[in-house]
Amino acid sequence: MDIQLQGHAIRLYHGGSAFDKNRPAILLLHGAGHDHSVWTFQARHLAQRGFTIVAPDLPAHGRSAGPQLSSIEALAAWTLALADALELDRIRLAGHSMGSLIALAATAAAPQRITALALLGSIAPMPVAPALLLAAQEDRARAHGMINQWSYTPRGQLGASPTPGSWLTGANLSLMERQAPGVLATDLAACNAWQDGLATAGRVVCPTLLICGERDQMTPPRAVKPLRDALVNAQGGARMMEIPGAGHALMAEAPDAISDALRGFFTDT
């Protein structure tokens, strides 16, 4: 479904089911240089289990138009504006990587609206390697290669995809190449610049689920601890789930485990 938001066409994916604002809503936010399609398995799974799913292409990503938003705060405000436009008063929110920072910021900004928060492949702050920031600006192909190298486990990098016939790293390269020049660099700069993550986490009042890949090199499990501690001590409390054998590209490498984790968490909350 395409809608107009703030004067720009926005692509929303609903997991193969019609949008129904009367059902419990889950918003799924993609990461840097991606679009809604990273969530297809999870979106279809949740849409069959009583939820209505909204997986947007963020502004200037995928099929969504509009100027790209260059800060986590602006993207969080946009996410809440999207919920307003869809007349969703209360939402469950999940985000991957950059999308997790947006989800975290949106949750803290609208504590009365977000009833559950799932953060996948998330750390705070989320410093981006200078080499990757530079490559994203000057040599996209190299940046895409670095992201693939750090996002997939050794097993994932050589294939053996859960999805028959899909070459995981090739698909990720193609998805990143489809974004306009500069989109990835702006996304990564926004992640790198946002320093308010831990303070923001302290203000979260809804339950939070942290999901990390056991072999994540981008946001490794050991680096999640400060964010986990902040969320555990926040009003809503938090728990952390480590997905065995998965890297940062969790939804592609372990689609069933992520679908099951999100379904369980959002059903219970």
């Binding site: 294939g159 053996a160 995809s161 016939g165 899909s166 090739g170 390269l173 193609s174």
Partner: peptide, 18 residues
Amino acid sequence: NAVLEERVAALEGGVGGL
């Protein structure tokens, strides 16, 4: 067959194969 599909896709620089 999926191994063959992925292997040829990888060699060709594609996203997947049949």
